[in-house]
Every structure is written in structure tokens, then in C-alpha cells.
Amino acid sequence: MSKYHDIAVKILSDIGGKDNVINVNHCATRLRIQYKDKNNIDDNDISKIEGVAGTVLREDEYQIVIGTDVGNVYNEFSKLIGDVSGQKKSRTEFTWKHLGQVVIDFISGTFVPILGVLVAAGLVSAVLNIGVSFFGLSTKSGSYTILDGIYEAGYYFLPLYLGYSAAKKLNMNPMMGAFLGATLVYKTIDSAKGLEFLGLSVPQIQYNTSVIPILLGVLFMKLIDIGIDKITPKSIKFFTKPLITMLIVVPVTLLWLGPLGFQIGTIIANALSFINLKLGWVSVGLMGA
């Protein structure tokens, strides 16, 4: 067995076993485990496991700092626990602090997996600029076209990547989230003018490179997913669930959630631009924080 398997076995034992695990995922350096009962977690023993750099116990989530090997430990841990989708935790009293933690966890859990794509695309753009400026790379050459394609694809299809990641974070089939993102950026829908659905006018929105519209769409998809899962017979669920989901979620996203998300994104962008132009020292402080 590998060292990652050994680490995963020890973590699972000290966290209270499979029955205490509701869900598990990871970010760039941390294994994130949603648990049932924190009293079953032996934080002291986990901190002493070789390969564990630290731990953070939060409400509903236990974070284990592992470093760049976290993906390998996650894979082994996932094999050990199998399917835990049926595990549920008793309802906790609502607090604004808890809501804030949930929102932050959703955003970070959605964006961290795609950071590699964005970083790679940005670096390819830098390589292109250097090639053109210092090495005579022609913008009409095949090499430029291919490299530019890598850069453009990294950002143009951002809704698709976010849809996949957000759906996975919400314990749905991630391909459904990607499907929604792909629909938003499809050539006959993205920035389409004069589009209508069942007599309702669809606002003209540019979805490629957008962020908030797809996040709102996937959150709505989660609600629909829960409802359809309860009422659809198992014998036909494989076919009808994705069909009904898309027939409901896509129109609602295009008609209302997408435009709302676009407006929210515009407000945030304008606010950040204002802070940067008028209150530069504040933006420096925010970046430093």
C-alpha cells in the first residue's frame, strides 16, 4: 500500500469512521471533511499523523492541512469511505455566521479546482506576448493560433468549468453543471439578440467569461434536483431526471437568473473599479488582506 493510503486509513479511523463522514472534498492543500459529530473526531491524533501539517475544526467541516499531496490522499480516502451520499446530519439552528461560512465554503470549493486552468491560460497569454514582442512570432502563424486557442479556451468556457465544479461541490452530477454552462455559451444563445422562449423575451447577455450567472443557475439546479429526485420513479430516473432538470433550469436561468447574475457582476466590477481609481490605497489593503 502507498503512504497516501496509510494516511487516509489513519485519518478515517481518527475521525470516527465512515459513519461520521457526510461528504469529503479538497482544495489546493486541505482535505475538507463534512462530519456528523465533532465529538467523534480525535484532533490530537490526526495532528500527529505523518504527512499532516495541521488541522482546522469548523462548524460542519473538518479541514486537514496536507499540502500538495492532498489530491492523492483524497483519492485514497474516497476509496475507503465509498458512497456516503445517504449520510445526513441533524438540522442545526440558523445563524448568520453559519450562512457566511456556507457561502464562503461554496465559493472556495467551486473556484479552487479551476484555478489551475486560469493560471495556465494566463501564463500562455504571457508566453504569446513575449513571443510576439521579442522572438518575432507572427500573429498569423499556426503556432500563434494554437497558443491563442489555449488562452481563449481557458476563459471563454469559464461558465462550463464553474458549472462542473459548482455541481460537484453541491453533490450533484457535475456533468449536469457543465451541461448548463455549455448551454449558456453556445453560439446561438450567448449574446443572442431577439431571442424568445414560449413568448417571453430572453435578455441579451454575454455569458462567456461570466461567473455569477452560472453559479445562480447551478444553485437553482440543486433545488430542482432535490425535488425531481423525490418524485421520479427509480425505473425511469436515469432518463427523466436530467431531461426535466434541463427543461426547467435552462429557461429560468436565461430569463431571470442569468440577467440577475450579470447585473450583480456588473455592480461588483464597477465597485472594484471605483475603489481602484478613487481609493487606490484601499484596494492595496484589500489585496494585501
Rank of each mutant, 00 (worst) to 15 (best):
I11V: 10
W281G: 15
F239A: 14
T266N: 15
N39K: 10
K168I: 10
L57P: 02
T240C: 07
K97H: 15
P203W: 02
L255G: 06
E76V: 02
W96D: 06
T68G: 11
L170A: 06
M175N: 14
A166I: 00
L223N: 15
P174S: 06
Q101I: 04
D69E: 15
L219K: 08
N208F: 11
N270K: 10
G199E: 05
I146W: 11
T209K: 10
G288H: 13
P113M: 04
K140A: 15
C27P: 03
D105P: 13
A271K: 11
G181E: 00
D105E: 06
N276R: 12
L223V: 14
F135C: 08
G109L: 03
W256P: 04
V132Y: 01
N72T: 04
V202E: 07
S273H: 08
Y4E: 11
Y35A: 00
F239Y: 13
Y74I: 02
T68M: 10
G261N: 02
A53H: 13
I189K: 01
L219E: 01
D14G: 00
G280S: 06
Y151L: 04
H5R: 08
M287D: 14
I22L: 12
I214W: 01
D229I: 10
V282D: 07
L257A: 06
K193R: 13
V185K: 08
V132L: 07
I226N: 12
S133V: 11
T240Q: 12
E61A: 05
C27D: 04
K278C: 14
I41P: 02
V119M: 14
P159Y: 00
I214V: 12
V117A: 07
L180A: 01
G149N: 03
K237Q: 10
M221N: 02
S90W: 09
L243P: 11
V84I: 02
F220H: 04
I189W: 07
L247P: 02
A269S: 12
V124L: 03
D229R: 05
G154D: 01
P213V: 00
V119F: 08
D229C: 14
K237F: 04
T139K: 12
G217A: 08
F134C: 06
L272C: 11
G71F: 12
F157T: 11
K230T: 05
R30G: 00
G199C: 03
V112N: 01
G149L: 04
